Amino acid sequence: MLIFDNIIETQNFLKSQHGKSIGFVPTMGALHEGHRALVKKSIAENDLTAVSIFVNPTQFNNPDDLKKYPRTLEEDCKLLEEAGCDVVFAPSAEEMYPNLPQLKIDFGFLENIMEGEFRPGHFNGVGIVVSKLFNIIKPNRAYFGQKDIQQVAVINRLINDLSFDIKLVVCETIREKDGLAMSSRNRRLTEDVRPSAPKIFQSLVIGKKLLLEGNSPFIVKNKIEDFYNSNPEFKLEYYEIADFETLEPITEFDKKRKTALIVAAHLGGVRLIDNKVF
């Protein structure tokens, strides 16, 4: 496995791999089994697999969140080598941003709902860094996890609107045995709050059950708010019932339409997100 921290060296190596298909997994490090699953999927479908490890400062609207984000490069590289990864691109912020970008990317409707509403500027930062990474790696396929469902929608818009010749591959969320969606942020959960964390997923299971029983989305959201009120260790940020394709909130549930339940909540100072699609 080759490890690069320089854009030019990374590009030169990948250009030398004439005719080989490249799968790409962009990450911010603190890797877990969910990332390993993305890498394994890429290895199965491509000649070469590249993974980026870069904690992107431009997508954090909260400086404390950026400061606390776990950085475990040595451990990450060990996991990637064991998984069979071919190339790791782990640049510094100075390498990626010799000058702060002046470009702004507006993803329209997606900017004003859920993550966009509560994290202003977040998707602009995501769009710029992913565009830069796509241009550096030039992959044939890019692999993202469904846990970040709104980010997936943003990347899909980016690929389509900017005509990137890349296939977006979305992989299922990998969970702990107790149902908690695997996330780099889970490392920050303390022992006293970690046992409560699976209630995030439980709230999605409850929401699905209530919808299938004939309750309206309005009633379901009220019941879920009651659920979180009865578990005061959580601070609910949002719980949305949306059309899977557009992520627009729905007011009437239709079993024939693919629906997404999407949640963000804080637990012990750690922001957790999850979703369930059915």
Rank of each mutant, 00 (worst) to 15 (best):
V193K: 06
C77H: 06
I219P: 00
Y239W: 15
V39G: 01
D254S: 05
Y228H: 02
T27Y: 06
A242D: 07
N6Y: 04
V277Q: 03
K276P: 00
Q146P: 00
K40C: 04
L267S: 07
K199C: 05
G125F: 15
F201P: 01
I22C: 03
I200H: 04
H266W: 13
E213T: 10
F60K: 05
G179Q: 05
I273N: 05
H18S: 13
L31V: 09
N6E: 10
T190V: 01
D274Q: 07
I136H: 03
D64K: 15
H266P: 00
H266Y: 11
L103I: 15
L261N: 09
L204D: 11
E115G: 00
E81V: 00
L180I: 10
K223F: 12
H266G: 00
E225H: 10
T72S: 13
K256E: 14
S183K: 06
D64A: 14
E248Q: 15
T58S: 05
T190M: 01
L48A: 05
P195Y: 14
D274L: 02
A37R: 12
D178Y: 08
L261G: 07
P26C: 04
Y239E: 03
K209G: 04
K199E: 11
G127P: 08
P198V: 10
K167H: 08
F118M: 03
P195L: 14
K235N: 06
I7Y: 03
K104V: 14
A265T: 08
A93H: 11
F227W: 14
F144C: 03
F4Q: 11
H32I: 06
D86F: 04
K276F: 12
H32T: 04
G207H: 08
I155K: 03
I7N: 04
F13Q: 02
Y228N: 01
F253M: 07
K147P: 01
I262W: 07
P249S: 09
N124Y: 08
D192G: 02
S42C: 10
R157N: 13
F24A: 09
L272P: 01
L66I: 03
C77V: 14
I166M: 12
T190S: 14
I3H: 08
